[in-house]
Design a protein around this nucleic acid. Sequence first.
DNA 1: CGTGCCAGGTGCCAT
DNA 2: ATGGCACTTGGCACG
Lengths: 307, 307
Amino acid sequence: MRLVIARCSVDYIGRLRAHLPLATRLLLVKADGSVLVHSDGGSYKPLNWMSPPATLRIIEPAPEDAELGVMQTWNVQHAKSDDRLVISIHELMHESSHDLGVDPGLVKDGVEADLQRLLAEQITLLGDGYSLIRREYMTAIGPVDILARDGHGRTVAIELKRRGDIDGVEQLTRYLELLNRDPLMAPVKGVYAAQQIKPQARVLAQDRGIDCLTLDYDAMRGVDDVDSRCAGSTTSIRASSDVTPGRGTVVPVQRHIESADDRNRWGGGVCPGTTGAGQDHCRRRRPRLRERPDYVRRSCWGIPACV
Amino acid sequence: MRLVIARCSVDYIGRLRAHLPLATRLLLVKADGSVLVHSDGGSYKPLNWMSPPATLRIIEPAPEDAELGVMQTWNVQHAKSDDRLVISIHELMHESSHDLGVDPGLVKDGVEADLQRLLAEQITLLGDGYSLIRREYMTAIGPVDILARDGHGRTVAIELKRRGDIDGVEQLTRYLELLNRDPLMAPVKGVYAAQQIKPQARVLAQDRGIDCLTLDYDAMRGVDDVDSRCAGSTTSIRASSDVTPGRGTVVPVQRHIESADDRNRWGGGVCPGTTGAGQDHCRRRRPRLRERPDYVRRSCWGIPACV
DNA sequence: CGTGCCAGGTGCCAT
DNA sequence: ATGGCACTTGGCACG
């Protein structure tokens, strides 16, 4: 990895065009030839960049550029496309090179896949008599997150999100439309399940007769409010405090076979990085676990309905 | 901006949990307190990060961490949420600090807004007799990119994308559903316009009776194949070569008033960063300008239809 | 390799 | 603040 602080202007030409006027910036050249141009603010996204694989060629500036004060021209060419990044360096303020070696990579917990695994295990959170049919039920237009059967034997398609936005409702609607075209499966009910469901998404879901279900990841992991020290990240359900409402004390459903990707992400089920941090984090606002909105079909977003 | 190369492990606790095992990485501390953890590969996205505003506090490691070889503990706390990044530093290999000043920021050309402006100007690309009603026509559920009227006086809602994916069809469907609930406006036709439309998106659009239109940004900007040196980035339409098909030689429609945001992004209409780069880029595969697919309604994605 | 979909998405702009 | 939406989105997993 090469770190360069330089006064430079940058031009990207590829899927679009982008230009950075002359200023002092960090140029980060990675081992795979990718280049990042960072300013001293903003977020993690660089102002400009070139994705790997790419090759950096440092050339003499064209005469007219040299006259304008360019001392080096960096030509970063993407290996597989026409995308190109041209950095015109006017002044080098710092340069250093470092051997980092290969990175072991990131381990995550709490993404949708984890939520999906837990909900599949605790499928009765949806109601009594629910049973799991399949996770990632494949259709021609994409996988349904969870397919289940309710107490009356009716098929239920569940779309799962970490944050329930409007596009998730669209997605589920698409699946429902498709599944309901199959006479053997119809009628299929839809459930939109997420840690948080945005009001607009809820309205749209209700307008389409889709159930909404707010999930509590911490509770589903078996952590309660009294003792939330990130100590119990195993998936076994503990005896819950009275905070967990109603049917909350659920034992993982074992009668249904899991699809194969059920590996434990943290290795031994130990909470990672317990270097003294994160105690007060788990003490968060806790949304209601089972939320059953009143259905207002054809709410029409406030438009006088065409009844 | 502070640059640190260090052997470290990293833990993020916030919207999810993420852990980075011990390895050598770049730690980038920006002026706003944000921190980026980069490896020597991957893309522009850091392995781990903290968004601004945040504060970095460097503290003595806890005794048990010190025993494990931690010499410094970085505590990066987000200012507005519980998100926290904890970096356990085992070894410092490099450290430097630099004053970059504020960045003038990026100037772009070729994003959806530019495409929208051009299509509004050249609305007759949609067909003879088309006229512009409004860009960014606001509805309760979001803005319709372009609202137009066809030769028969019928309203047409146009959803514009750079890349025509399936979610754009959903978006347009949502708008059409809403607009068609207004008896004064119905029936509203839908047109999905993009530089490239994915096959699945096209199928879904056709299934819903939505027209697809592939746009050629370069051609609409007035650049042709013969002489594509990025020299003519003005919006005036030049005499086109025979490559531009059919009704291609279009004069910008002036009879329709623009909405106010029509400033020229490049100042004087000059192509940016002409430091000798980008000649061969503009010589790309050129999709057909006017594409009118055969409509197959109720295609049911291959499922035996419920006719 | 294309297609769908998640992401700690981030950023921008609207009400 | 919340909502809708673009983004050089990037990245992964699966057909």
